[in-house]
Design a protein around this nucleic acid. Structure first.
Length: 961
RNA sequence: GCCGAAGUGGCGGAAUUGGCAGACGCGCGGGAUUCAAAAUCCCGUCCCCGCAAGGGGGUGAGGGUUCGAUUCCCUCCUUCGGCACCA
């Protein structure tokens, strides 16, 4: 403990209190099952998006949201809430692996070092986390449960009738009971009347087979085709030079790798996929259950991309085949003048004529090698080839040509379209280029040109449907198509299934085995978890110049780890038999190779908010009573329940938040969590921007190498090391713009409390705003002024025991009201302004104790070290209870209004006088006094008063002319 | 192109429901203190005219609703974010 002095020695007392909080576990959060748990307190779960522990540490932009949630959590604790506010690390990922490749240091070591460094940084920021709950996604005890969730996905299927995920065992049971049979393409067909035992009389749907009619291999395939986690051959971004697949975000617009600028190819590879599309509808619908920024909900909605339309079958001329298309505009069917298949469409070969075959094959081959980004770049001109085949338009029996073009994507709808060039921008462009007919079928309102018109209108050239509005036409034609068995209403989503494997080392291994003999895939038994990531010597991915060389993930080098023996359990999972061990008697032992891919970085961050709840539980991901306590809707919170406040950057608007919602819903369906949504309320903090400087070549110059010269219009920026002039611009703070400012430097020069208060004072939390080290002195002055207000030069405390006078008493209550309101709404900038105003009003003389104590409580969440120190000094040296457990001050509404108010008197909206009236003055009194004011009398001379508007407590406006 | 957010002094920003535009802070100007400086304290600081009293203008631009608009409506401009051939 430091000896009391009169000097504002922030370095000493900030370290003292940080140590105090950690040693006393001040912010440990008791919960159901703990001895000191108090069930009478309301709960609140405040969550930060956890960081990636990078080697370079934090800059002042990173902790913006963390400071905000820390302040909010401290405020809620003082309000009597049981607050959960944990922190952890999203520690798998590429940088540690790249570092390992370059320096030979195992990622585990680098990561441990970076985490220790980041923890120390967070503690120096005075964060009141419950450190007992700290997690890292790379901890074996953590990723055991990431693997466990994967097993749940693997062992579940989506039941469209019940609209829920269910254990695969239930599907097998239903197939064995013949409640369901298997269709010709492996699809599940419910049997009508199955539950009544009448199916014998009804008979099975044509083309279907019962479970008992399938071979064991066919059964395996049927099950695999319905798992929520499945292997599939998909076109991926394959970078042979890096030896890995890349996410779309990791590929540049030029079709090269973000790191290293190596070529990237589209290539079909057998990869793990997660069936997120099964949840598309619920992921979209349940956005209603959460309290999120509207912009984020819209972004997720657009990403899921639900559209309603119809599927229509077009007969192929001289063939039994039909081409099924999806359209959102069935009302334009009469305007379909040609069809387009995606180059990968299965009917391309069938419809192609002999004369066109060579050209079609060349086009298909070329399309295969273009990346998706390449193909979808709108700046690129559309290309295509006529197949020589024709289809019949079902509504008017017109013969229309079939083309192939890569502007039609195989992955959306049916991979085939009817082209209506008159009313679709893309079809219009294509038709103009290739001279295809354009037929108007929609009459736009007004005099707009119908060519390329894509809006709604009145039907023309559409036979008996002429004259209908677009909406009515859609409805009628969809009914007609259904009645004629030519098509049906259909819903489509832009959302695709989630590519879930990476050819990398530093990620979670899959709990999956491949039979060494047959290649068949099996899941490990839950009892075999965790599958630990093995130590290897060489972390390099196997690079190759040959784009067709098979991928060789680094885990392939861990041969002892990868090759295992095991046996099947009754449930169909595999238990391992370790060297020297034996399987149970009579059970055959088989050789397996482990899955060598690892999971993407998103996996660990998909569910971390659940593990904080029950980090030490070895038997379950989270105990049900604990999960139920924290994830239930809070008082007045959104009905979807979940984390009560989740704060993070908007850059995760789609992927992380969508993936996490998907996993959460699976866990919900399977009964492991109680809330349908993981994050009830979401708040996006803005970025901290900073000036960045570029030299003549456009290269960024480190901010520390910059000197300002001149001022005003003559302000210039000079690079100190070379003396050359540089230009200034504003950008997101970070390494790439060389404009990062380290929080440690600010804490060292001004103190942590100053940094915290300044970051909050910069502006609204949700706004992006520029960092200005120059402006920090304002906050530093404020906190020093607070110190000097209470501590004399000799270190003695300056408070008096008298009650405050009426003016100060009212100001105090008004300030409590303002700060409480602002805290509640995360408006810390105005809360601080209110506290500065109160402090400014305390000028001269000693402060009444009542005012001093209330003031410190209000400031404590923002500047906790300063307030702890002053609180202790105020209470005497024997005092050791943290101010963070004091009760938040209450205010008296009656004291928040002044006895007298100044009323503005306007004539024709312009202020002409000010009058002082009792706050209780009614409209009549206001009017009387205002009209009697000599300034107003003079102003109204020669005018007639038409109207007098009185707003009690605010103004009088006289309309006169 | 489509979707979304935002434009207020020299700067960051404030203004709960339509009711005194510019709270609070930075910077700047002046003063006090000091041998001097730093620190601190006090006063001033939207723009224009005026010694002043006072007057006029003003929240990206233009229009509208209203007694009254930073706030609501329409059109446009600029900046930032997201999506980008999704039929």
């Amino acid at each position: 403990m430091s000896t009391p002095t009169g000097h504002y020695d922030f370095a000493a007392f900030e370290a003292k209190w940080q140590k105090h909080w950690i040693e006393n576990r001040t912010f440990r959060t008791p919960q159901p099952g703990d001895e000191d748990f108090d069930a009478s307190r309301p709960k609140f779960y405040v969550l930060d998006m956890f960081p990636y522990p990078s080697g370079v540490g934090l800059h002042v932009g990173h902790p913006l949201g963390y400071i905000a949630t820390d302040i909010f959590s401290r405020y809620l604790r003082m309000r009597g809430f049981n607050v959960l506010h944990p922190m952890g690390y999203d520690a798998f990922g590429l940088p540690a692996e790249q570092y390992a490749v370059e320096h030979g240091v195992p990622p585990r070591e680098t990561t441990a070092k970076n985490i220790a460094n980041m923890r120390a940084q967070l503690q120096r920021l005075g964060m009141g986390y419950d450190w007992d709950r700290e997690i890292a996604t790379t901890d074996v005890a953590y990723y055991k449960w990431t693997q466990w969730i994967f097993l749940q996905l693997y062992n579940s299927w989506y039941d469209p009738e019940e609209d829920t995920a269910r254990p695969l065992a239930e599907l097998i049971h239903s197939l064995e009971c013949e409640n369901r049979v298997v269709g010709p393409h492996g699809e599940l067909v419910p049997v009508a009347g199955a539950s009544t035992g009448l199916q014998e009389f009804v008979g099975l749907p044509p083309g279907t087979r019962t479970w008992s009619q399938l071979t064991p291999e066919e059964r395996h395939d049927v099950l695999d085709a319905h798992r929520l986690a499945y292997l599939d051959e998909v076109a991926v971004n394959w970078c042979p030079a890096l030896g890995t697949v890349l996410a779309n975000e990791e590929v540049t617009n030029e079709g090269r790798s973000d790191r290293g600028n190596h070529p990237v190819y589209r290539r079909p590879l057998r990869q793990w996929m997660l069936r997120i599309t099964a949840y598309a509808d619920r992921l979209e619908r349940d956005l209603e259950l959460v309290d999120w920024p509207e912009a984020i909900r819209l972004m997720q909605g657009n990403w899921i991309g639900r559209s309603e339309g119809a599927e229509v079958d077009f007969a192929v001329e001289d063939s039994e085949e039909v081409i099924r298309v999806y359209t959102t505009r069935p009302d334009t069917l009469f305007g379909a003048t040609y069809m387009v298949l995606a180059p990968e469409h299965e009917l391309v070969d069938v419809v192609t004529s002999d004369e066109q075959r060579a050209a079609v094959q060349a086009y298909v081959e070329q399309a295969r090698h273009r990346s998706d980004l390449d193909r979808t770049a709108e700046t690129k001109e559309k290309t295509g080839v006529f197949t020589g085949g024709y289809a019949i338009n079902p509504v008017n029996d017109e013969r229309i040509p079939i083309w192939i073009a890569d502007y039609v994507l195989m992955g959306y709808g049916t991979g085939a379209i009817m082209a209506v060039p008159a009313h679709d921008t893309r079809d219009y462009e294509f038709a103009l280029k290739y001279n295809l007919p354009i037929v108007q079928v929609v009459q736009p309102p007004g005099n707009e040109d119908w060519r390329g018109y894509v809006g709604d209108g009145i039907a023309v050239n559409s036979g008996r449907f002429d004259g209908l509005t677009t909406a009515e036409f859609k409805k009628q034609i969809t009914e007609w198509l259904e009645s004629e068995s030519l098509g049906k209403g259909a819903v489509n989503y832009k959302l695709r299934d989630w590519l879930f494997s990476r050819q990398r080392y530093w990620g979670e291994p899959f709990p999956i085995l491949h039979d060494a003999a047959t290649g068949q895939v099996f899941a490990l038994d839950e009892s075999e978890l965790p599958v630990e990531l093995p130590t290897i010597e060489d972390y390099r991915p196997q690079a190759s110049d040959d784009p067709n060389a098979p991928p060789a993930p680094p885990l392939g080098r861990a041969t002892d780890w990868a090759n295992v023996r095991g046996y099947m359990t009754e449930a169909g999972s595999v238990k391992l038999v370790r060297p020297g061990q034996d399987a149970p008697a009579g059970v055959p032992v088989r050789a397996f190779r482990r899955e060598l891919n690892t999971m993407p970085q998103w996996a660990g961050s998909c569910w971390y908010y659940l593990r904080y709840l029950d980090k030490h539980n070895d038997d379950a991901l989270v105990a049900p009573e604990v999960e139920d306590y924290w994830m239930a809707p809070c008082d007045g919170g959104p009905v979807g329940g979940g984390v009560d406040l989740y704060v993070g950057g908007a850059e995760h608007a789609v992927l992380h938040l969508l993936y996490a919602r998907f996993w959460h819903k699976v866990l919900y369906d399977l009964g492991y969590v109680s809330s349908p949504e993981p994050f009830g309320r979401l708040f996006n903090q803005g970025y901290i921007q900073a000036y960045a400087y570029q030299d003549a070549r456009g290269m960024y110059v480190d901010v520390n190498d910059i000197e300002e010269q001149g001022e005003g219009k003559d302000l210039r920026f000079i690079r100190k090391s070379t003396g050359e002039p540089v230009t200034r611009s504003l950008g997101k703070m970070g390494k790439s713009l060389k404009n990062a400012v380290a929080p440690d430097d600010i804490c060292h020069n001004y103190g942590t409390d100053t940094l915290r208060a300044y970051e909050m004072y910069m502006g609204p939390l949700e706004a992006s705003k520029p960092w200005s080290t120059r402006d920090i002195v304002g906050m530093s002055r404020f906190l020093q002024a607070v110190w000097r207000r209470f501590v004399a030069e000799d270190g003695s405390i300056m408070v008096v025991e008298e009650a405050p006078d009426d003016r100060l008493h009212r100001l105090l209550h008004k300030t409590v009201k303002r700060v409480t309101f602002d805290m509640h709404n995360l408006r810390f900038n105005t809360a601080i302004a209110a506290l500065i105003e109160l402090n400014n009003a305390l000028s001269g003389g000693a402060v009444p104790r009542q005012v001093a104590e209330t003031f410190l409580k209000l400031l404590a969440p923002i500047a906790p070290h300063l307030c702890e120190e002053l609180w202790q000094r105020l209470r005497g040296s024997h005092w050791h209870r943290s101010i963070s457990v004091e009760r938040w001050p209450a205010y008296d509404e009656a004291l928040c209004v002044e006895a007298e108010v100044e009323i503005v008197v306007q004539v024709m909206g312009k202020i002409k006088a000010r009058i002082t009236l009792p706050a209780s003055a009614d409209e009549g009194q206001m009017r009387e006094v205002a009209l009697a004011d000599e300034r107003i009398v003079a102003e109204l001379t020669g005018k007639t008063v038409r109207k007098v508007v009185c707003i009690p407590g605010r103004l009088v406006n006289i309309v006169a002319n």
